Amino acid sequence: MMIHVRRAELSDAAQIQRVYASTGAYSGTLQLPHPSVEMWQERLRNFDPDSTMLVAVYDGVIVANAGLHLEKKQRRSHVASMGLGVADAFTGRGVATALLTELLNLSDNWLHILRVELTVFCDNAPAIHLYKKFGFEIEGTHRAHAMRNGRFTDSYSMARLHPHQPLIPLRET
């Protein structure tokens, strides 16, 4: 399967909406069921120019998207958060790996980001496995983090530090 990853464009709104119309995509993220094309058009139109939204395309169809969002606070300018959603029919087929590879390439080699953060539902074993494969570590648990399917669901806070940028230890005074 050949996946092409590129930056999202305004004209992609309808296809991104279809990704998040699939149960697994909205259940595994903080998206709500029944997204509208207009909502995605608005998000794409007003997307922060300092952040990045990518799409994964298979056979001319968008099957997933991912975003890398840079922190605005000066003291956290070394941090980005990320999110990712894959259409149900394309989970387990390398699509998330392709998107995550490109997001981390941007983060590590182009954006001067030291730390990438994310949250993932505790019961999303495939996503947790993927993130760990890319060096993310669980840093904590958010209890009752979000409502999903009528129940409050816990999530993990995960983060990854740039693998080739050692931290400078604090000096004791």
Score class of each variant (00 low, 15 high):
Met1Cys: 10
Ile3Leu: 04
His4Thr: 11
Val5Asn: 07
Ala8Tyr: 04
Glu9Thr: 01
Glu9Gln: 10
Leu10Ile: 12
Ser11His: 11
Ile16Val: 11
Gln17His: 12
Val19Phe: 01
Tyr20His: 07
Ser22Cys: 13
Thr23Asn: 11
Thr23Ile: 01
Ala25Gln: 00
Tyr26Pro: 03
Tyr26Lys: 05
Tyr26Gln: 10
Ser27Thr: 10
Ser27Gln: 11
Leu30Pro: 11
Leu30Cys: 13
Leu30Glu: 07
Gln31Arg: 12
Pro33His: 04
Pro33Arg: 10
Pro33Ser: 04
Pro35Glu: 13
Pro35Thr: 11
Ser36Cys: 00
Val37Leu: 00
Val37Ala: 05
Glu38Ala: 11
Met39Thr: 15
Met39Ser: 09
Trp40Val: 12
Asn46Asp: 13
Phe47Ile: 04
Phe47Pro: 07
Asp48Thr: 02
Asp48Val: 01
Val57Asn: 06
Tyr58Ser: 12
Tyr58Thr: 13
Tyr58Glu: 15
Ile62Asp: 00
Val63Tyr: 08
Ala64Asn: 03
Gly67Asp: 12
Leu68Cys: 06
Leu70Asp: 07
Leu70Trp: 03
Lys72Ser: 08
Lys72Arg: 11
Lys73Glu: 15
Val79Ala: 15
Val79Glu: 05
Ser81Glu: 10
Met82Arg: 08
Gly85Tyr: 00
Gly85Asn: 00
Gly85Asp: 00
Val86Pro: 13
Asp88Asn: 01
Asp88Tyr: 00
Ala89Ile: 05
Ala89Phe: 06
Thr91Arg: 15
Thr91Met: 05
Arg93Tyr: 08
Gly94Tyr: 12
Ala96His: 02
Leu100Asn: 09
Leu103Trp: 08
Asn105Thr: 14
Leu106His: 08
Ser107Lys: 09
Asn109Thr: 15
Leu111His: 08
Ile113Pro: 05
Leu114Phe: 06
Glu117Arg: 14
Leu118Asn: 04
Val120Lys: 09
Phe121Leu: 05
Phe121Val: 03
Phe121Trp: 13
Cys122Ala: 12
Cys122Ile: 06
Ala125Asp: 09
Leu130Asp: 12
Leu130Glu: 10
Lys132Asp: 08
Lys133Met: 03
Lys133Ser: 11
Phe134Gly: 07
Phe134Thr: 09
Phe136Leu: 09
Phe136Tyr: 10
Glu137Ala: 10
Thr141Gln: 07
His142Leu: 13
Ala144Arg: 15
Ala144Ile: 04
His145Tyr: 15
His145Gln: 00
Met147Gln: 04
Met147Asn: 06
Asn149Pro: 11
Arg151Glu: 15
Arg151Pro: 01
Arg151Asn: 11
Phe152Asp: 12
Phe152Pro: 09
Thr153Tyr: 07
Thr153Asn: 01
Tyr156Asp: 02
Tyr156Met: 06
Leu161Cys: 13
Pro166Tyr: 14
Leu167Cys: 02
Leu167Trp: 08
